[in-house]
Amino acid sequence: MGGALFSQPWRTIPKSNQENLDFVKSYRPQNKEVSHLRILLHGPVGAGKSGFINSVDSVFQGRITNRALTDATSGSSFTKKYTTYKFHKDQDSFYSFIFNDTMGLQLNNGVHVEDIKLALNGHVTEGHKFSLEHQLKEKDEGYNSSPTLDDRVHVLVSVVPAGSVSSLSDEVLKKMREVRMTASEMGIPQLGILTRVDEACPKVKTDLKNIYKSKYLKQQVEKFSVLLGISLNCNFLVKNYNSEINTNDDINVLILGALRQMITSGEDFLNSL
């Protein structure tokens, strides 16, 4: 793991969270066929998908939340069900985007790629329990045979720990590429999130503001972009809330920046329909 820094950041970070927060709060899909933008997270086991959902919620609540359960010890996927996460704006209303969390991809088991493809098309119902033995079929409980545009996925986000890009197995990469290819055929926009930046670079662990000065992290973003074919400007570095007991602006600004890009990409897709 490298600790060398550029003298200037290779990507600018907003000085303030307010503009991105205002944008996210006021967002409404212009396409009248949908009530919300659906963002699907996928990636290897332990990538930080559930942690990212919790971190987004923490930004909005102004306190640390743990709605999406995470597991730091087992080494197998802790997310078993196809779960939709909405975010409270106030007591009576929600933000106009939702997240879906999927079971992690892993070597010999984990979620079936075909199940993620079905989710992209809106065929997987809320609460469906992923099975290691059987992929979802048309007659199964949990299969939505007539999905609406609301049920379909509007943005696909690939999540990987920044320090694990080089060690992704060929099998997991193949699965991620396959999901990405299906999304591409459907015109669904795709972004990459590289998590655990503080574990990957000691200078970033010392000061999160070094995140886009880190030579090592820039290399990982470039490598991830080549491996999955997601363009460089659609890959984001974030730190999820995990050991913190309070929220802070340095973490929030990275999460909100990535979230805004997810929303604008998804909105472009919905408008193109």
Score class of each variant (00 low, 15 high):
K223Y: 01
L228W: 03
C234F: 10
N240Q: 09
N240M: 07
E244H: 10
S231H: 01
N235H: 12
K223A: 12
N248R: 11
L254Y: 04
S243Q: 14
S231W: 00
N252P: 03
N240D: 13
F224C: 08
M262Q: 10
L227T: 03
Q261P: 01
T264E: 15
M262N: 03
G257R: 06
L228R: 00
F224S: 08
N252E: 13
D249L: 06
Q261T: 13
I263W: 08
L227W: 00
T247F: 02
L254N: 09
K223D: 12
G229S: 02
A258L: 13
V253R: 15
N242K: 11
N246I: 09
L259W: 08
I251S: 00
K239E: 13
L254S: 06
A258C: 15
L228V: 12
I263Y: 14
T247Y: 00
L254A: 13
N246R: 13
N252F: 03
T247G: 06
C234G: 01
I251Q: 03
F224G: 10
N240V: 03
V253Q: 09
I255T: 12
N233G: 01
V238A: 03
G229D: 04
N233W: 02
L254K: 06
R260D: 03
R260A: 11
I230K: 03
N248D: 14
G229F: 08
N240K: 10
I263H: 11
I263L: 09
N233V: 04
L227G: 03
F224W: 09
N246M: 09
G257C: 12
K223Q: 14
N246Q: 14
I251L: 10
L256M: 13
I255Q: 07
I245A: 10
G257D: 15
G257L: 15
L254C: 12
I245S: 11
T247S: 07
V238Y: 04
I263T: 04
K239A: 09
L259S: 08
Y241P: 10
V253N: 10
N235G: 05
I263R: 11
V253G: 06
N242T: 11
N235M: 06
M262W: 08
L232F: 05
N240R: 08
K239Y: 02
E244I: 09
S231V: 10
I245R: 14
N252Q: 14
S243M: 12
T264F: 00
S225Q: 04
S225R: 01
F236A: 03
D249T: 11
V226F: 09
F236D: 00
N233I: 07
L259V: 06
L232D: 05
V226W: 00
N242R: 11
L256K: 06
V238H: 05
L227M: 12
C234R: 15
I230L: 04
M262Y: 06
T264Q: 14
I263N: 12
N240C: 15
L228S: 04
V238D: 05
L254W: 01
N235C: 15
F224E: 04
V226Y: 04
L256C: 05
L237P: 08
F224H: 09
N248W: 01
N252I: 02
N248G: 09
L256W: 04
N246V: 10
I245Y: 13
I245E: 15
N240S: 11
T264Y: 05
S243N: 12
N248V: 09
I251E: 03
D249Y: 07
D249R: 07
L256G: 05
F236Q: 05
G229W: 02
N246E: 13
D250W: 02
L232N: 06
S231G: 04
F236K: 05
I255F: 11
V226H: 07
L256D: 08
F236C: 02
